[in-house]
């Protein structure tokens, strides 16, 4: 059996103010999987995400990325492997231009010159934002900013892409465009979401986090159709959406031109 890309064992964490958010999380994600992380507000999803690239340090338990433990001495490498797209693109786009924001990560990895330019443009092309490279991020629409935020992470060529509520606040067209982008990427994905149709469409597998522990793990369709389970964990399907009647999720789109992510 292959080493999981994400290997979380018994992870517990309390914030400095004493509030404990995680109570022993176990989660394994394998190469090439797209996994949805579901759970009500305050379940600890963002807290878990922040452990995956060592922004928060485990209070108990371990996190490893492709076998490499998340620990101080490996942080640089871990952060290259795990790309986190935060919930609010304004938090992620902090520099004066799209180019500078996308270049920030690869520059910190040591890329310079033409190599850096190429990285920036490739990542922006992947999200369809290449023409906006010289604009200030705060002049872009929300959907465009979310896409640039994804590009800032793709430019680091991560092995696993972690997205915190990627479809929130997007209008339907932007939501669709982002789904197409995510489907076209050849990279392992862990996606935090409240958007059940999105989870069903993009992710074969889902896990449910509730009160700081993983309470369910299985195929997205099975989870979403288990009414008792859904109700127990305060998860609801949007009005009129019935996962039983939705066709099979479209498969991974064949990635045409060489994608950024390394293949496993």
């Amino acid at each position: 059996m292959s080493t999981p890309v994400l290997d979380v064992r018994g992870l517990a964490y309390a914030y400095p103010d004493g509030h404990q958010a995680l109570f022993g999380v176990d989660l394994h994600v394998h190469r090439g999987e797209r996994v949805a992380l579901l759970g009500p507000n305050g379940a600890g999803k963002t807290t878990l995400v922040l452990h995956l690239n060592g922004i928060l340090a485990a209070g108990a338990g371990t996190v490893a990325v492709s076998g490499l433990p998340v620990a101080k001495e490996h942080l640089q490498e871990i952060r290259r492997r795990v790309g986190v797209v935060f919930q609010d693109p304004d938090d992620q786009l902090f520099l004066g231009s799209v180019r500078a924001d996308v270049a920030f990560g690869p520059h910190n990895l040591g890329l310079r010159g033409a190599e850096l330019d190429a990285r920036v443009m490739t990542a922006l092309e992947q999200v369809g934002m290449a023409e906006h490279v010289d604009r200030p991020p705060h002049h872009l629409s929300f959907g465009q900013r979310r896409r640039v935020a994804v590009a800032t992470v793709l430019a680091m060529q991560p092995e696993v892409l972690v997205l915190d509520e990627p479809s929130s606040n997007l209008d339907p067209a932007s939501r669709r465009e982002l789904a197409d982008i995510l489907r076209s990427l050849d990279v392992t994905v862990l996606m935090v979401t409240h958007d059940m149709p999105y989870a069903l469409e993009l992710c074969e597998r889902s896990v449910i986090l509730h009160d700081g522990t993983i309470v369910a793990d299985g195929s997205t369709r099975d989870l979403l159709t288990d009414d008792a389970l859904m109700a127990r964990h305060r998860l609801e399907l949007p009005y009129g959406f019935d996962p039983r009647t939705v066709g099979p999720a479209p498969g991974r789109a064949p990635a045409p031109a060489a994608p950024a992510g390394p293949t496993g």
Partner: peptide
């Protein structure tokens, strides 16, 4: 946090606004 996630080490390069190649 978003800066740390992309390898921030306390320095922010100032000249990323332009293409870097000659």
């Amino acid at each position: 946090l978003a800066m740390l996630a992309r390898g921030y080490d306390g320095r922010i390069p100032l000249d990323l606004d332009r293409p870097q190649a000659p």
